[in-house]
Design a protein around this nucleic acid. Structure first.
Lengths: 343, 343
DNA sequence: GTTATTAATGCAAACGTTTGTGCAATTTTA
DNA sequence: TAAAATTGCACAAACGTTTGCATTAATAAC
């Protein structure tokens, strides 16, 4: 089965390539193609199951209807979650997305961007991994519009949509305080990343306001399970053991739980935990984990929307967006007077 | 910044487009381009940060170095796991993958295939969702090679790589039996899908051999959390309550756990559970869940390998592959004489 | 001092589209 | 009935590559 093309249809119907093209693109009226011709060509196209070559189309029009999506790590449910939304939203608007991950290193990020650009993606939605926005800014200026999600830069005008992580940090800390905790430790992720910085800032702020400045304790190096595990190990073995731990991601939480289990402690009874990120399985853990959920649906949807607006040349939209997080109350924090450790 | 092309480099260096092309494709020697020229052109290409247009390249060579990957649902960790492997393996060999999901319905599957083909993917790796292989067979024959993963067809020659689900079903059931269980129920997923069918077949086989034919109980309609929840509800409220439940996927498991929790029962003590699929978080559930793990790494890697072989015209590889599953023993099955219900 | 070799490069077609412009035939206008 | 307007379509260039073949200049062979 030879692949069908405008040429092959042209030969079979006797009409010129341009006429076929215009009919199949709904430009028939504009070019006054007769009704009879339109029907004839449409019928033939359907009969032979014609599919336009998006390569040729893209080459000619400089538009591929393709978006690049760069995340840190496909395996992380938070990102696969967002990817899912972005892919479907894009599809909804006629776009296909190419998904790639940077493995959270700048070298791969650059390589991936180049690869996407050589495929002429119309735009790039990315969770950036470095501390320096200039590379992506240049891409945004010269090659293809860039929209950031999750992570973003303060000193850059790149559009982004993320969670109000500061608020999230405050919510978690306040919740601990309301339940009588004072010794609250925070295990953070990649320290220079905006989400980590902002969550920590919220935590510090609330601690300070409560007069617990001396109890502030932040550690951690990245958003890995291992990091959560190691830091928790250290915390549990320190002289000044906390009664509550604020883990800044679902991955850190898993590591923390492992360390806690190994110590024979029970979450809630012996030590309280709040995590960031909302995942279905968190409700099935023992106990179900109280957490600060991010509005991933809205983040993905808005990112695509901003991208599309940008592609259509509209620039009147607010393009630096922080969405409110949500406290999802479960059972991993002891109630006042209930816990054993912190009274 | 005007996009660089062979033409722009040609103009600047004075060499013809073909010479540039050959140099940049490493064909210099073959065409006896002088060393000086090669260096000059290479330097200029690097200087201006030239990236070839893969659209033009693909159009001309009919090769895009792109693979399509179709899965049922991006959000399911089992699939995002496999996707991760496939994407990285493909990248390893110079291929980019376009990820799409069929939402487990044939209409979307067809649409997605068409979309991929119009992008001229070199091949398609897919978890098929229907019962009829003919559509994908036709694609495989006429348009692009197809390799199936996870699900496959008995009456088709399409290459596939999957888990030996039959063996997995037997392993789980035998494990239950060895621990003294007799009333073992099985909650299956999409009943006509090969994984579900084979796992159930293994379950039935072992039950029969143990003389427990009368205790065989299989229900379930799909691989959703809801299905797991509802079926477990029914099981727990039936007159002939099972002492053990074999859930055929991680999603079904989550649903089942919810139902079990709601009944106030405890896994292991009151009811035993084995699930299919291996996920990190299963170790953090209460209790950690004993499960039949699939070799997702190998599945993804082999699928890509088979695809590449097929693209290179080699056909001498075994292309219908079942890999052995692995029993991952945790703590969700009561030990003989320990459980309360089944003695 | 011709002629055959070889080295180094250029020409032009083709891949499958889109789109500005051109042009013949038909119809309308005056 | 001639000019003008409209209808219905075709031509051809362009997008950025790859690649078979042609071409030129230099060197070697005789």
């Amino acid at each position: 089965m030879k692949k069908e093309s405008l040429v092959s249809i042209s030969k079979r119907t006797g009409y010129s390539i341009s006429t076929i093209s215009r009919v199949l693109n709904g430009q028939a009226e504009k070019y006054r193609i007769s009704k009879k011709t339109v029907e004839l060509i449409s019928a033939e196209a359907k009969r032979c199951n014609y599919t336009p070559s998006l390569l040729a189309k893209g080459l000619r029009t400089r538009k591929t209807n393709t978006l690049g999506l760069i995340i840190l790590n496909i395996d992380n449910p938070y990102f696969s979650n967002i990817s899912n939304i972005v892919i479907h939203q894009a599809k909804e608007h006629g776009y296909t997305v190419i998904l790639a991950d940077s493995l959270e290193n700048e070298h791969d990020e650059r390589e991936v961007v180049r690869s996407l650009l050589s495929r002429q993606v119309d735009g790039i939605i990315a969770v950036p991994c470095g501390q320096d926005p200039s590379f992506l800014e240049e891409i945004n200026k010269n090659s293809a519009p860039v929209v950031l999600i999750d992570r973003y830069y303060q000193n850059s005008l790149l559009p982004y949509v993320s969670t109000n992580n500061y608020q999230g940090g405050k919510m978690a800390t306040a919740y601990f305080l309301a339940r009588g905790h004072k010794k609250i430790a925070c295990i953070c992720g990649t320290p220079y990343s905006m989400p980590s910085k902002e969550r920590v800032r919220g935590y510090r702020e609330v601690m300070k306001q409560a007069g617990l400045e001396s109890e502030i304790f932040v550690s951690g190096e990245d958003f890995s399970i291992m990091n959560g595990y190691l830091e928790t190990k250290l915390l549990l073995n320190s002289k000044n053991k906390p009664t509550a731990i604020f883990t800044l991601s679902n991955t850190i939480l898993l590591g923390a739980m492992k360390a806690i289990n190994e110590s024979g402690l029970k979450i809630n009874d012996d030590i309280s935990v709040i995590s960031f990120d909302n995942n279905t399985y968190l409700d099935y853990l023992n106990p179900p984990i109280t957490r600060i959920g991010q509005p991933t649906d809205e983040i993905g949807t808005l990112a695509v929307k901003i991208m599309l607006q940008s592609l259509e040349g509209k620039r009147d939209m607010e393009t630096r967006i922080l969405l409110p997080p949500e406290l999802i109350e479960r059972d991993s924090v002891s109630k006042p007077g209930t816990g054993t450790t912190h009274i």
